[in-house]
């Protein structure tokens, strides 16, 4: 209290005159403004479960729900439907499994979100059609030219196959998919690899990217930032579409998407066309 009294004295002695001006400037508008916007936002509350996509559309998704009152697991963008904020970075994750180079991480610190659950027909692939038996497949005889014959059913299931670009004609289905266990991928040695660990497969060719990914330089992780922290690792196929990595002529690894809204314009400015005017004609 003594301390406050000293400050009060200083204030009173030096700032008495000016301080009355300060007080006069402070009007009562703030409380009212805050109240109206609050009610506005309340009416926009979602009625049905909000599902937002994470990295790219068509890969992993997350359903918005409250973990505790006022604390959602994720906030979705009202404009694009993309995940914008994580309340719980580890929701729906499982341990990554064995990954060479990450052995030093403490148990359970490398997590991935399983993708196989989302690929709904995956369990059937290996039993219904690609069960490894059939007149031509026993023993399996594979075509030499790596040109897959178009099968309408397959193309219907995976539309990207009609315009298959990955490898620019040098690779085909069975370079990545296991010959007989069709709900698995295949690694360097012909052993099956889970769809949840595509990095074991992709690293076969993209070794530099695998190295950068393992060291945290390439790709995305969420959770704790310490180098041995608990993280959810985004795997290759969560960001890249393996059948169409190039995205046609764009030749970029990541598909185009809708951007979030642009910032507010400064006072008195109707549009941002001035930004597009180049001072030097070209």
């Amino acid at each position: 209290m003594k301390k406050i009294a000293i400050y009060a004295t200083i204030l009173a002695l030096s700032g008495g005159g000016l301080y009355s001006v300060v007080a006069a400037e402070k009007t009562a508008e703030p409380a009212a403004a805050a109240a109206t916007t609050a009610t506005e936002a309340a009416t926009a509350a979602p009625t049905e479960p909000l599902v937002c996509f994470e990295s790219r559309k068509g890969a992993s998704e997350i359903t918005q729900q409250d973990i505790k009152p006022g604390w959602p697991n994720v906030k979705c963008s009202p404009t694009t439907g993309a995940a914008l904020w994580y309340g719980d970075p580890f929701e729906g994750t499982v341990p990554m499994g064995k990954m060479p180079g990450l052995e030093n991480l403490p148990e359970g610190h490398a997590l991935v979100k399983p993708r196989s659950e989302k690929l709904a027909i995956l369990p059937m692939c290996g039993t219904a059609c690609h069960n490894g038996v059939g007149p031509q497949f026993n023993p399996p005889t594979l075509p030499k030219d790596k040109k897959p014959t178009a099968i309408p059913t397959m193309e219907g299931l995976v539309p990207d196959l009609a315009n298959f670009q990955h490898g620019r004609g040098r690779i085909w289905c069975l370079d990545c998919h296991h010959t007989t266990q069709r709900n698995k991928l295949v690694d360097n040695f012909g052993d099956p690899v889970s769809f949840d660990q595509p990095q074991l497969l992709c690293g076969k060719c993209h070794g530099d990217k695998l190295r950068d990914w393992r060291d945290g330089i390439h790709g995305k992780r969420i959770g704790e930032f310490a180098s041995n922290g608990k993280k959810r690792w985004f795997t290759c196929t969560e960001c890249h579409n393996p059948h169409n990595v190039q995205d046609g002529v764009r030749n970029r690894g990541f598909i185009q998407l809708q951007p979030e809204p642009s910032p507010q314009l400064p006072r008195g400015m109707a549009n941002a066309d001035h930004e597009k005017v180049h001072p030097i004609p070209h």
Partner: peptide, 17 residues
């Protein structure tokens, strides 16, 4: 110990912390 919010949402993993 948690990553900043912008790092966690960047869809291409351009942000590193």
């Amino acid at each position: 110990g948690r990553y900043p919010a912008c790092v966690e949402v960047c869809p291409v993993g351009a942000r590193k912390f």
